[in-house]
Nucleic acid binder design. Sequence first.
DNA 1: CTTGGTTGGGAAAAGGTTTTCTCTTGTTGG
DNA 2: CCAACAAGAGAAAACCTTTTCCCAACCAAG
Lengths: 351, 351
Amino acid sequence: MASNAQPVSAKTPVTLREVAASAGVSVATASKALNGQGRMTAETRERIRETAQRLGFRPNSLAQSLLRRRSFTVGLLTNDTYGRFSLPVMSGISDALVDKGVSVFLCNVEDDKRLGQLHVDAMLDKRVDGIIATGKRIDRHLPVDLSNLGVPTIYAFTQPDPGAIAFVSDDAGGARLAVEHFCRLGRRRIAHVTGPASFAVVHARAQAYRDVLTEKGLPVMEPLLGSWSEAWGHEAVKKLFDGKLSKSGDEKPDAVFCGNDQIARGVIDALRERGLGVPDDVGVIGFDNWQIVAEATRPPLTSVDMNLAALGREAGLTLLSLVGGEPAEPGIRKLPCRLVVRQSCGRLPDG
Amino acid sequence: MASNAQPVSAKTPVTLREVAASAGVSVATASKALNGQGRMTAETRERIRETAQRLGFRPNSLAQSLLRRRSFTVGLLTNDTYGRFSLPVMSGISDALVDKGVSVFLCNVEDDKRLGQLHVDAMLDKRVDGIIATGKRIDRHLPVDLSNLGVPTIYAFTQPDPGAIAFVSDDAGGARLAVEHFCRLGRRRIAHVTGPASFAVVHARAQAYRDVLTEKGLPVMEPLLGSWSEAWGHEAVKKLFDGKLSKSGDEKPDAVFCGNDQIARGVIDALRERGLGVPDDVGVIGFDNWQIVAEATRPPLTSVDMNLAALGREAGLTLLSLVGGEPAEPGIRKLPCRLVVRQSCGRLPDG
DNA sequence: CTTGGTTGGGAAAAGGTTTTCTCTTGTTGG
DNA sequence: CCAACAAGAGAAAACCTTTTCCCAACCAAG
């Protein structure tokens, strides 16, 4: 609102030399005046500052970077083009860095080794201060070798090289959250429907599921592995409610913990088609907290959120401290998940 | 693969000076040798090349940029953090630029003026060669003024400033594709269920819908405006099949053209609940071709694709030609949509 | 009047590359 | 044998900023 006279944006950026000339001083003095360095009369400093302001001077970041050997730039590699996983991560990274004046090169390498090398080389040529790798799966490498690059590297939600620093979601912890929540709500026969065995997280979550039920002395049904799709959710309901499941016989599940939100959606739809009420007859919890799915589901889906933005933020801040020369322990840091309770899981009876 | 002896990645990058020293020539000669400039014996050139290779020399992009006043870097502004719209656009841009050695700064400005200015300033300081603005809506401005920046600017899938160059989807054309496809399939009573009136595309598509039906001499039902949600799709089916719609009376729609894929999904689910078969009784076409929704729908959803990646590619290439000094007409370029036929729209009766 | 310290400011190098200009040497034609 | 010329390679300026070092002037004290 304060109507600052905006300097007219020049076709060619104004340099420190021009500022100095216009203020009648040397470039050295001008530089010092603007950076609060050196000794000079207050008037001189102020005059130079005003001149710079009037001319719309902004220091050339390239020249600064060349001198300081620090570009205030980081590279972000991903193979998750349309990713609902890496996007929140990116967003968190960006959040963490923008305040420090650091810009992010986003590079999608798909699963193409050539493209990966291309992008990494371009980053190094542009003297990025560091690199963050992210992806669509926690248990797969990007198609490019990031060890020994000469710049700090952090892995976020992707498979790290040995000896590196990585941030990933605590999938087992997330699964515990969901199953324990069901237990607290008094559900007794909790099933688990999840994705394909080729995903590491499938096993981590399934094991946590078994662990919690064992701890609580509740019956463990063997997790149903399938695909990450609604269709599989549908099909799994058929298996759960038509077949005989465990030795304990004919009792049907009163809760289903699903490996992702799409499966959960399929499960809920299939339950409705059978005339089973969600959450009254069967509680359902999903995973990923993919908002657009979770909120469109009837009833809205309770789901485990992996806190990916926070994960990205941590990765960004850690990279920055690495760039600043501070040491950091290598290793994998698991960040906790969080249960977002909506209506599909039910409430305590006496609520 | 040819086992090239990979140069050991040095902690500190090797400079041209070191290459020159190692090859026993001056930096000038070394530079010319590597760039194919100047005159020298083939042996000298080759020797320098080999030395550079051996040392793993890569020119410092910052120094080059400083000299050439060209950073091989562009800024990409968006306000679509989790966007399924701007992400394909970005992907297209990146595709178009990576081959030319241009890297992309991705900056999410949300809808925050301060953040926008912050990012734009950072870009200008880093001497980007150009800026591309994209967003989540074609009829809204980013929260930042990009006119008169001193660098070429292109708008892609967002509201341009007057006199700028912009690429947007041809929503009217896309709607025509859908409605005409229904006509070709012999559908006669085609309804339109779409989003809120506050979106310009809603009107553009609705008008195209009316135009096509009028041209074909088919009855025009007033488009139903609501929200972009599944729930609205559900509700709209109620209105379409319970109420009396147009003067022509009691005939129910045999096709529904939906404003996006989520609405279409809601429509299909609601039709199924009424015992109406898709596509046999009613054909359905969506918009956006959001793959994960379109393919999970039963039956898989026919949908209009806005070709956003192509749009991004065009934007990227145009920006590059602008940076190269070639002139370009200002104005809005509408890029055609494409109908992705799956199973929800039906086929010709005789196949 | 010297000496020593302080104050305000400038000159120059550094950062890494590209490019223009200049210089040396060898070759060819007269 | 000399002039003219081409080839091969180096010196230096330029890009823009930061920082170190240095200089001139001024002041007070001895």
